[in-house]
């Protein structure tokens, strides 16, 4: 059983106003695969994670994490320098 991999894909996709299909075409996968990844049904391979990181121009650990991501509202509420 692989560990749950948390991700920020829905937020990043919404930020850029992309549909699942547009993101899927950009990284060369089926649109259902993007849905599986977003819901955490399946973990991406290293290759796919790197493709996503390159597409969003972010480090991989900003997109995927073994720990749940802190909600943006809490991050925004915390004083500067504390995340």
């Amino acid at each position: 059983m692989s560990p749950t991999l948390y991700n920020r894909l829905p937020v990043l996709r919404a930020e850029r106003g992309l549909s699942r299909k547009a993101l899927a075409e950009a990284i060369g996968v089926n649109y259902q695969t993007v849905g599986y990844l977003e819901r955490g049904d399946y973990n991406p391979s290293l290759e796919l994670a790197l493709k996503l990181a390159a597409f969003f121009e972010l480090p991989v650990e900003m997109i995927f994490s073994l720990q749940p991501f802190e909600p943006l509202s809490r991050m925004a509420a915390s004083p500067k320098g504390e995340t």
């Binding site: 089926n30 695969t33 399946y42 391979s45």
Partner: peptide, 8 residues
């Protein structure tokens, strides 16, 4: 097939 489909 893509990555996830190959794994499936």
């Amino acid at each position: 097939l893509d990555d996830v489909e190959r794994d499936l």
